[in-house]
Design a binder for these strands. Structure first.
Lengths: 208, 208
DNA sequence: TCGTAAGGTGACGCCAGCGTCACGTCGAGC
DNA sequence: GCTCGACGTGACGCTGGCGTCACCTTACGA
């Protein structure tokens, strides 16, 4: 045994992991900077010290790579947001928890954020309705559950989910641009607006 | 004079206009379907009965074409939205007018909408902060003016503008997906939410 | 009716990305 | 230490987009 590596892996296994990671990391930067459409496999490989042929030992093509890159970022966020929401005991907590988790993610990983923002159109078209789209679906489901229990007034859950996610996206962009990004402030703002919106929707509904 | 054309233009002038229009129209569809990045000049030309060389008599390259295509749609919307807002006599009218105009546009020209949605990331990156971005700026300015006059409670105008635009974008997507799109319903929903949000922001501010 | 030139045409040369494959290297296992 | 095969390598053939240009058609004006 000539093991070497600090990890428990052999050299071969280790470089394999490293190469894959290098490709994904380079791809993340490339897709974020120039967008999926104009990026080429070569662009990614060039940001790596690998040969072009090597790429194809790891991924069959650009699209597969893109899917993996997104998976790595987005799935985790969505899961975190949803988990945070699940623990909420009140409506305010429900809304705030989701926003806090999401804004926290943006602040901590601006590159992933840029990646998703830059390619949001492509993402929507490619997976039709995933990543953010699925986020909307999940939120709508959570809202419907909350309405059923009576925590949230009766309202169009689909529209409400869309409004919440849309606001999150744009407020997030604004927050990231401010230095340093104020996660708590953005969370408070978004939460207040959306809670106020639900309140008023409830009031108007009752009035009619 | 062999004029011919129904319009007052000569044949040459007429085909020139028609060719330009044909290219722009084809480009709109191509960019909407495959996104700016992966679209090629050839893709556009192929949707036309023109030869590839002809394209370069009208536009120097893909980017110029893209800018013109966007200009044609976006500038007009932004102007319409802003004009509608300007006539508003109350806060409710201010918010509702903007949304109504915007949602009306989406419903009336879904292709332009698809174009902008599909390429929103590219647009942001290319013009950095135009189209929608400029929309946010304008809205923020209008909000600040309204705050100064006392119609809108003191709040972070930039965040508020972001939230309003973000909500508009996503609610718009949802609205367009419903058949038939209910412009008034979406307008009422978005307006109520955002007004409620402002209300609550004002209340919380006063409380602190 | 005729000369002129505006402008459409598409083949052309160039370039870059694609995916492959024959070769070489080097770690793994004995 | 030696053999073996996994895997990195980069040149290669191919494809398709790019922008150009010599040619030709035809509207225009006299």
């Amino acid at each position: 045994m000539s093991v070497a590596a600090d990890s428990g892996l052999g050299r071969r296994e280790a470089t394999k992991l490293a190469n894959r990671a290098a490709i994904i990391s380079a791809a993340r930067r490339v897709f974020a900077e120039m967008g999926y459409g104009s990026a080429t496999v070569r662009d990614v490989v060039r940001r790596t010290d690998l040969a072009s042929g090597t790429f194809y030992n790891y991924f069959p093509d650009k699209e597969s790579l893109f899917r993996v890159v997104l998976e790595e970022s987005a799935v985790e966020v969505r899961a975190r947001v949803r988990a945070a929401r699940r623990q909420a005991q009140s409506l305010e907590e429900f809304v705030a928890a989701g926003y806090r988790e999401y804004f926290g993610f943006l602040a901590s990983d601006p590159e992933a954020f840029e990646l998703m923002r830059r390619n949001s159109g492509t993402i929507r078209a490619m997976f039709d309705e995933p990543i953010f789209g699925a986020g909307v679906e999940e939120l709508a489901a959570d809202l419907r559950a909350a309405i059923a229990v009576g925590i949230v007034p009766e309202l169009d859950a689909e529209y409400m989910a869309a409004a919440m996610v849309g606001a999150a996206l744009e407020v997030g962009v604004t927050m990231v641009r401010r230095e340093p990004p104020d996660v708590e402030g953005a969370t408070r703002f978004a939460t207040t607006v959306l809670l106020g919106g639900m309140e008023r929707l409830g009031r108007e509904r009752r009035a009619s």
